[in-house]
Design a protein around this nucleic acid. Structure first.
Lengths: 332, 332
DNA sequence: TTGTAAGCGTTATCAT
DNA sequence: ATGATAACGCTTACAA
């Protein structure tokens, strides 16, 4: 347990040269089967483990991907992180995860740290902030980076943007609610002015526009708490609302809980659709209809785009939207 | 954007030698202030970024900590991971996170991968599995590792174990329920035979023992779903139960939801206490009392133990328990 | 098919 | 206070 064995030690043990060991490590076809066997035996005998950092020093690809997540405690992002990590692990890449807690300063720090650690590329679900070019550090280092979910740096040629097709999702939800006979529909949750809010709201606005109705917009924090508050607001000020599209499931779950507590019959009197289809949707009473963003598939797509870029130099298109679908449950 | 500048480039730009630049990098006091200034100016001028992998090659401490989490989608572990990452980042360490999805095989793979990437140490919330020495790979590599939450490898001298004091927590909960006048209390959730289940149950069993009552144990998966099912079981088979201690909050939230749906008055007729104090506790109706494991503090403790080990060679004690507390809310 | 030797970007040990 | 030079563990021409 002195010091980790190196290829040199393996070479000595197997009676070959360093290079031969290196070739075995790289599964080169050049090396004779019997030699390969000897080398591999030697490795297990002395407990050799590969040292990637050393290898990276020559080849400048660490097999490390930096994953930056604005808020890991949001289950939607957790699910994404977990899936992405699995997808990349399949291809021999390890993920270095940084949770930045919606803090732009922390984001810069972590980007810096990850660059120092030699990540080969970044996948960033960025924090919103005052900085105009929050990903500039990455660009300076000449590393590839994908923006996911949120496009905070407008240079999507440099930092291609991937996100679920929120617009289509909101249209799907609206059609569904109309189809169920809803006459007066509200949109609840999501911070005003943000691109995501605008998108998730777009199908709703389009409909109210066409119907020449005044939209009922209750924008606010994307939290359970806000959903509960919104339930009260609706009961007090908009008792005739019979359908709600929510910014996300947290809001929707709060709305369902709050409305139920105030005696509204969610699922018949009031129909609610959420966004994201997180696990909690199936477990609420009544269970929550939601727009699923197919996160496992989305993570696959992101992973593939990254790997193509890294391995084949294929830069992804500046913007790419992935399919969403409506999951109908009892709340609507 | 050719290739990343190295200290050599900085040296040339600043008109000094490699060594001097290296000294500046290490904040050595030996270097003259004016020289330091020159060097630092040169760095920003040519956009130099430190290359840790290269440095590690010499110093064999990567500043990388491998964090292995059995199930990242469980918010309890997410919270821990997020806190730990922040605590370690404060000290200049980066966390490489691996979610192993309760899969022992994946666990071995990830341990291997992280060792190759040269992590300096591991913090592991392990998966249960058939393997008797799942952390052997780490031992072979001669790396320090902490087990948290679950002790799956019994060699706690090699892999010190840190966990919240579940026993104290369950006692706290029982005292509270008795104090509220509960006469017949059940324990719900947690897989039978697991150490965690035994511990979280221990305060309960102690009480039933002392009171010479038959314990009512509904063990099972630690999920929301199981909590809902348990609510039904209680109504049907144990209608006289007036207090419940749950294995964790997911179970408790399910139980509260299920019981409420069946018309039981949670908080008066039936008093419920959960375990972990996850965020959802405040948001349920009625809000859920729970045993808080003070995860931010726990993460701090874990981080400190790891760093002392790494930096000062101080091996943590084989087992360490951290304080828990009861958070009283409406469900009890 | 295998070996030799040069280099990757840093740190550490000497000198100066 | 600064500079030369040899490691660190690996990959990669090139030579044999």
């Amino acid at each position: 347990m002195d010091r980790r064995p190196t290829i040199k030690d393996v070479a000595k043990e197997a009676g070959v040269s360093k290079s031969t060991v290196s070739l075995v490590l790289q599964r080169s076809a050049l090396v004779k089967d019997s030699t390969r066997q000897q080398v591999q035996d030697a490795m297990t005998r002395i407990g050799y483990v590969y040292n990637r950092s050393a290898a990276n020093l020559r080849s400048t690809s660490t097999g490390l991907i930096g994953l930056i997540i604005n808020d890991l405690r949001n289950p939607f992002f957790t699910e994404f992180a977990a899936r992405l990590q699995m997808a990349l692990a399949d291809q021999g890449y390890a993920v270095v995860l940084a949770n930045i807690n919606e803090d732009p300063a922390l984001q810069s720090n972590m980007i810096n740290a990850l660059i120092e650690h030699g990540v080969s590329g970044f996948i960033v679900s960025p924090a919103y902030g005052p900085d105009e070019a929050p990903l500039q550090l990455i660009a300076n280092a000449g590393l590839p980076a994908l923006q996911v979910f949120r496009k905070v740096d407008p240079r999507s040629d440099l930092f291609p943007f991937l996100a679920p097709d929120y617009l289509a999702g909101s249209c799907l939800a609206m059609e569904h609610l109309r189809g169920r006979g809803c006459k007066k529909i509200a949109f609840v949750g999501g911070l005003d002015g943000r691109a995501v809010t605008r998108e998730r709201m777009s199908g709703y606005l389009e409909m109210t526009d066409r119907a020449a109705q005044d939209p009922i917009l209750l924008t606010g924090e994307a939290s359970h708490r806000f959903g509960v508050e919104a339930a009260e607001t609706l009961v007090l000020h908009h008792p005739d609302v019979d359908g709600v599209l929510c910014f996300n499931d947290l809001v929707a779950l709060g709305l369902v809980a709050g409305s139920t507590a105030r005696g509204r019959q969610v699922g018949s009197g009031l129909r609610v659709v959420g966004f994201d289809d997180i696990e909690g949707c199936q477990q609420s009473f009544p269970s929550l209809s939601s727009i699923s963003c197919a996160i496992p598939d989305f993570a696959q797509t992101v992973s593939q785009n990254m790997l193509h870029w890294l391995q084949d130099g294929i830069v992804p298109p500046p913007e790419r939207r992935t399919p969403v679908s409506l999951v109908k449950r009892d709340s609507s």
